[in-house]
Every structure is written in C-alpha cells, then in structure tokens.
Nucleic acid binder design. Structure first.
Lengths: 112, 112
DNA sequence: TACTATACTTCGCCTGTCAAGGTATATTAT
DNA sequence: ATAATATACCTTGACAGGCGAAGTATAGTA
C-alpha cells in the first residue's frame, strides 16, 4: 500500500533538504535513502524529484556540481546552502504547526 | 501567519468529513467552526470549500439538502453518508501513516 | 442609503505530481 | 555476441486541488 501523494505534497522540498543536511548527495542515491528510511513504503517519482531539484536550486536553497566519476553514469551532486539550512528550519517549524492544526481539525472531539 | 496550502492539500476532505461526523451542517458554518477550532489561524477559502463539497457529493461521501429558513440567506446543508463515514476512517488511518512517515523523513537523525 | 454580515456559486489561473518517453554507461545473464 | 538489468539523469504534457476574483441574493445596522 502506498501513500496518497496529496498528503506528501508540500513535504518534498523538506524531505530533500533534510537529506542534504546530512551531507552532499545525488538524486538517485537520495531517493534510495528515502525508500530505505521508509522501508520501501515510499519513494519520490523521478519527475517529482528532479523538478524539486530545479525548484530548490532556483530558490537558492541548494547548489549542484557534477561528480568526477571515472566509471559508470555521471552524477549530479547537490549541496544545501546556508539559505537552504534556514529554509529547512522554517519548514520544520511549519510542519509542527500544520501537524497540530490538522490533528485538531480532523479528529473527533470526545468532549464539548 | 497562515499555513502553506500545500501542507493542507489532501486534508480538506478529511476536515470537512470530520466536521460532518458531528452532525449535519452548512458551508458557511462549517468554515466558521474551522476558524474557531484553530483560533483563527486557519480557514478554508470559499472556492476551496465549495469545490470540496461538489467533489465529496460526487463521490457519494456526503449528501445535501436545502434548509427551510424563513429568513436570511438560504443554506445548503450537508450530511455525511455511511460510505462517507467509512472514507473518513480510512483517511484518518492514512493520516496517521503519512504523519509517521513524514516525521521519519524530515527530521535529522541523531544516531546512525 | 450605504455598509456589513450571511450564504452560496462559478471561472480561470497557478503549482506540484507524475506517467511516459528519452539518453547514456556498466554489469550480468544467456 | 546479445539481451537484460541497474545505475543515473532529463523533459514534456496532462491532471487535480487550491484559490483570487467576481457575482448573486437576503437581512440587519449605521
């Protein structure tokens, strides 16, 4: 069973930034690590992933460079910027906020 | 401060269904109750609200009828169906799922 | 008489997701 | 040799939900 993408929407950027907080990485590997973290229950679709990279780089939250692999397919590595680290912290705070709000709104109240 | 709409996307239906689990209600009042529950920090935009009603009714999760107000503006009341109650429970379960997954993905791990 | 609150509706734009298709290299199986 | 698979990246076009903006109608208040 997969997860509705509308529930993840808006978290893609945060997920990627969180990943890059742990160090530079490239797209394919980032997605692999996401699959691993969730025990295969979730993965970003390639189109979604690379669209997000463009968006984040455009916003100045990440920067990229080509790896110098001597063998195998080329890799484009991404690095989180200072600005991106700030954005990450903001996004985390917003998530805490949103999470509480959603819980408040979708649960049935016993009292009242 | 408001909340990013992409963080709410996918929860609109659940929020409305949750509201109707407490009994029949009409659009304007539903939105008021949402504002109240969140201390004014959140409200559904009218277009979003009424679009959601159409969608939910289309799906058979809610049904509607006109109120018999003798005065003031007419009100269209909404009622959650059996099917809608099932959908609500499913959506709640999915939220629990998604919530855990997101937390796992966006937080920094101390260990490892 | 104008404004505000209540209450519902529709149109068209914007944005993020994703199916589908493409490119290229290296390894493994037939 | 050749086919298949894994790695790794990229783009296009369609789709769906959120929402700004505008409109309709009624009732109470300044």
């Amino acid at each position: 069973m997969s997860i509705a993408s509308d529930l993840i929407r808006g978290h893609t950027d945060t997920i990627i930034l969180a990943c890059l907080m742990g160090g530079d990485n490239y797209g394919y590997e980032i997605n692999k690590s996401i699959q691993q973290k969730t025990g295969g229950r979730y993965e970003l679709k390639e189109a979604t992933l690379y669209t997000a990279f463009r968006r984040l780089e455009q916003a100045g939250y990440i920067s990229s460079y080509w790896g110098d692999e001597q063998t195998g397919a080329r890799r484009r590595y991404y690095s989180i910027t200072d600005s991106g680290q700030g954005a990450y912290r903001t996004l985390i705070a917003e998530w805490q906020n949103a999470k509480n709000m959603i819980e408040q709104l979708i649960q049935l109240e016993e009292n009242e």
